[in-house]
Amino acid sequence: MNELKLIKQAQHGDKKALAELVKLYEQTVYNFSYKICRNKERAENTMQETFLSMVKNIKQFSGKSKLSTWLYRVVSNHCLMLARSEGKHEFSSFEDVEATIDEKEIADWKVTPDRVTENNELKKILDKAIEKLPPEYRIVFTLRDIEGLSTEETAKMVKLSVPAVKSRLHRARAFLRNELNKVFKYEQK
């Protein structure tokens, strides 16, 4: 059954259709939540909150955007709210873009991305680096570079201007590259 038909049925109180929609998107939502939260417990909590919101508000879903876009927005907002309530991050170090690029530290990385799926050490390195990024930057980087949304779609989702998204993306890319470079320039193939 196609997604629109499922949404229509769910809007009329069909629980089976609602369950089908959850099954259709639970993997995407969990994976995206993890990419933002970087913690399995928080990702699970975010996934639950996201689908609770979907169940509660499905009647208001107009269908003007994709359901996945709507779910991404709920995940982003929930993760931001969690992060703000914890108040862990300081943003000053991300203001100076020039400082994030170090011309003297350019090395040819010896480690390749295909090793990531089976390598837990590598996963820890990636987690550690991205956890240092403030969530506002992490969301922009994940939506734009990982999930493949356009700059305009990302801007709309996080309610920022296109130049603000570009600026955050630039800083996130430069910062993450530098963080990984500290480790990967010494790794062996």
Binding site: Y30, A43, I146
Partner: peptide, 8 residues
Amino acid sequence: FYKKYNVT
């Protein structure tokens, strides 16, 4: 690297 890092 980040694209290939997925959880199930």
